[in-house]
Nucleic acid binder design. Structure first.
Lengths: 128, 128
DNA sequence: CTTGAACCTTACATGGATGTCACATTTTAC
DNA sequence: GTAAAATGTGACATCCATGTAAGGTTCAAG
């Protein structure tokens, strides 16, 4: 598929898709005219990339990480180096911290929302 | 306490603390000479701010949110406006999404780590 | 062949918390 | 009183995924 369809199907901008490719996170063939042609597989890859980005990993680490992932074929194509391993463990700790912070923030939000709803019932709701 | 102590106790840079104050997220008295004097209370406040930042809230929303929080005294000082309420609900959805993405990423990391450890045992470990 | 949609590359802009540097003033210790 | 440490302000830099605009080429349909 071409970039427009991939962008549409993943809800990721073409700009970002080109950026991902440039960073080595996404591969594509090229038509004789130079247009990108993506494999069906790219859809899942892009979704994974989005998740990793949302988790705060930077493209460089994702690029280092991807070859060490087990894909559909089974084993990884590369083994994580000691340096990468340390990085990943560090990222893991950061992720755990972030999850805790997210839960805290969500609780704060819920509390504010609940309190406000109590005083300020949404339109269409019956007052207690 | 002064800014240095607060920075040390919260592990947040003085730069950031001044920024928080500038954004209306943190209050301080001033000594006759103009130095900031923080209340003991500021420690918890800064920790909360860090959690909210880590959860991806921007300072402007935090500033709008803070007066609507229930503090130690009991009720909130202000009630959330409808606009803020919509914002917070939107943030809440974003947070839920992010938590899911974090879990996914953590699983990816764990898988890579486990695979690499299997082949590349940490120094000092016995081989299987 | 023509036309419009889709795509290409390149370059510059953006946001937002934080880092950093310069220089002045205050505070603290002696 | 003096030196050193801490603090103040202001300005500029940084990161990095993404937005956006310009100008040219390719693709698909009539």
């Amino acid at each position: 598929m071409r970039i427009g369809e991939l962008a549409h199907r993943t809800a990721v901008s073409e700009r970002s898709l080109r950026y991902y490719e440039q960073q080595g996170l996404l591969v594509s063939e090229r038509t004789p005219g130079g247009h990108r042609e993506f494999h069906e597989r790219a859809v899942d890859r892009v979704i994974l990339l989005q998740q990793l980005f949302a988790a705060g990993l930077h493209s460089k680490k994702i690029a280092a990480l991807l070859p060490c992932m087990r894909d559909a074929d089974g084993g990884p194509n590369e083994l994580a180096t000691q340096q990468l391993l340390d990085d990943l463990r560090s990222e893991r700790r950061r992720i755990d911290r972030t999850i805790r912070d997210l839960r805290t923030s969500r609780a704060v939000l819920d509390d504010v929302i609940a309190t406000a709803e109590h005083e300020l019932p949404p339109a269409g709701a019956a007052a207690s």
